[in-house]
Design a binder for these strands. Structure first.
Lengths: 197, 197
DNA sequence: AATATTGATTTCGACTCGATACTACATTAA
DNA sequence: TTAATGTAGTATCGAGTCGAAATCAATATT
């Protein structure tokens, strides 16, 4: 019986905890908790379908009530802006305010991690990424969660021409940069996940 | 410029968050938060030098005050036992109570993760482990943290004979099972960490 | 038009967490 | 021996997290 999956779990949990601590450290000048920093980072990466409290809650793995609290705080501090969606007036859209952009630029929340991985070859990192990504996808499938991902690799992604793309699910055209943001409607191409042992 | 370290960070954070949620889920029958579950798991793996509030706090990445609170709760619930050290009466030693052992056995906090990793080959997992372990060690060195680890791979580990071992730092003899628990005095063999790019 | 569903917010209570202060014991220096 | 310093752990406080449940408003379904 192989114990290495448990060792991996241990490492992921510990690194996750450390990064949460790191997030707290990074945000303390602005009185932010690590969840708040994570939320800001998320908003800087979310595409136009995914900048809502709902998607954020799924991403962070908290309930929507909790997410609402955090967003309230970020709004009070002027780090984000909230505005209503035109088509569906229940939906609240979120956007980093200039202050929020500046904060991310100044605080560099990922710096410590980049340092910690500096001696690991790109290749080993990509291998680790692939293993963890598969773990995440499988876990999400097991638990009816949302996977999140970029257009490349998504079932609904269509290429219209050399530089024109389209989301088959939403029916919108997408720009190049659009396709590199993360989306909570993401669905893995080739629905089957496990190809067996 | 390679973005994959940041992708890895993202995956580790998200999986960390998910496992925290999972820990909460697992503990809800017993009214435990994920930190409590993590503490119990830690105590089930900690060796004789590492079963103290101090070591636990370092491991979980919280302050000793916070750790103290969590331990108080676990004690009230009868999941752990606390007793004084004979040599240094300031030191509190911790041990899983029978109820705590039973809880871990019943709740299987790692089950969801084991499922999520079921389709990943042992080899890929070991590669990911090695990359993350190096990340953790480097991070700890950067931040004067404690690395934790098993005797194999520790500077202070000495083999006396086929089945007799010794910790050079504490001067104690160790049994075989002892050497497979985790220790907060662990120091990586070959102190140099980064061999450059 | 009535009902169900959905996105978001509010409220509540238990708990986390860092900061600070404090107690008890241990080690060192005088 | 005593005094000063250091260390392990606990207590307390306040801001905030978090899930659960209730609520509200807008949209879908019937």
């Amino acid at each position: 019986m192989d114990k290495s999956p448990l060792v991996l779990l241990d490492l992921v949990s510990r690194l996750g905890n450390l990064m949460r601590t790191e997030g707290r450290r990074v945000g303390q000048d602005e009185q932010l908790q690590s969840v708040h920093v994570e939320a800001l980072v998320y908003l800087s990466k979310a595409n136009r379908y995914s900048n809502t409290p709902q998607a954020l809650a799924e991403y962070l793995g908290v309930t929507k009530g909790t997410a609402s609290q955090s967003l309230l705080l970020l709004d009070r501090r002027g780090l984000i802006e909230r505005y209503q969606d035109d088509l569906d007036r229940r939906v609240v859209r979120l956007r980093l305010a200039a202050t929020g952009e500046q904060f991310l630029y100044d605080a560099q929340p990922q710096l410590a991690w980049q340092h910690a991985t500096r001696n690991i070859s790109p290749n080993r990192i990509r291998n680790a990424v692939s293993a963890l990504r598969e773990t995440l996808t499988t876990f999400q499938l097991d638990n009816e969660g949302t996977a999140f991902g970029e257009c490349a690799g998504c079932q609904h992604f269509e290429r219209l021409s050399a530089r024109a793309y389209r989301c088959g699910l939403m029916g919108d055209r997408l720009s190049g940069p659009d396709t590199r943001k993360i989306c909570w409607l993401y669905e893995e191409k080739g629905s089957g996940v496990g190809e067996g042992e």
